[in-house]
Amino acid sequence: MNAMVKPELICPAGTPAALRSAVDAGADAVYCGYQNATNARNFVGLNFTPEEMEKSIRYAHDGGTKVLITLNTFPPAGKVELWKEMVDLSARLGADACIVADIAVAAYIRDNYPDLRIHLSVQAAASSPEAIEYYVREFGVKRVVLPRIMTISEIKGLVQEIPCEVETFIFGNHGLMVEGRCSLTNYVTGQSTNMDGACSPAACVKYERAADGSMSTILGDYMIDRFGPEETAGYPTICKGRYKCDARDGGYYAFEEPISLNASTMLPDLISAGVHAFKIEGRQRSRAYVKKVVAAFREAVDSIMAGQEPKLADLVALTEGQKQTEGALKTKKWR
């Protein structure tokens, strides 16, 4: 077996406090974004002003941690100026890489900031050697974040075929659907996950409680789930909704289930497969989540690299619906 390459731990931050928590807990890199449509977690009250980003980059670099800036949405046709401005800003602030999905944004970085690393977002949904080679050849992409649809053996085969680094998700929200192409929120709320950066914006979400303790989740004009008094809940997204349909009795999770990815037991296999970076999802989560999850995976990766059995902290309390899966990493038939 080849010598193992120690993968970077890529950690989420929705606020400067969360970024500091990630750095202090041992993140190799933190990914975060601005308060606008360039960011696929464009939620109210979250994300960074330019001033906060500047201070946060300084804090991260002082701690030996990189900052990757998410410009991972798709500009509407002919309206790419905001994305260009955010690239200019990121380069000026000393970002270590920009995570992009759109080829216009990638081309702008290639032409104007050849030293700024481009990481291809999961939103670009590039999973074949041909697609990834195209992005590397045309835009100089240095790393691809893989969609959550591949088994470990497929990832291993891909790593051997492509001329760039590979990053995989190891923990967090498992709303994979058709990454970068999902229009369900757009259908119900009029806002686009892919172009406005907000899936199920909070302004469109309502929770209604009944006298028996059950809770209904309403998105826009539609009830998308109803949880019994003792049932755990999930995120208010259509892909995690439970519906009545002719083919099934009772409520049916037609697309996805309220469940989180947890690949902690598969880390040794992912490292052996040659994955360069492990990504933790959750920029919308609190700094308590960031602190606990980053610390747990820091310890696990370090133990594996030292040839020891990793201690795996119990993270199920932090998972959506308090349920976890190894997803497609383990089997294509994970549902």
């Binding site: 909070a202 929770y207 003792e230 809940a233 609190s286 989540y289 932090l318 308090q322």
Partner: peptide
């Protein structure tokens, strides 16, 4: 983590969800 408490139903939110999310953040 507020989301974890929400998932376990130990935290209940009613009314303006956006206002609560902003306060949390």
């Amino acid at each position: 983590d507020g989301d974890a408490l929400f998932f376990s139903r130990d935290l209940i939110v009613t009314g303006d969800t956006e206002a609560v999310v902003c306060l949390r953040n």
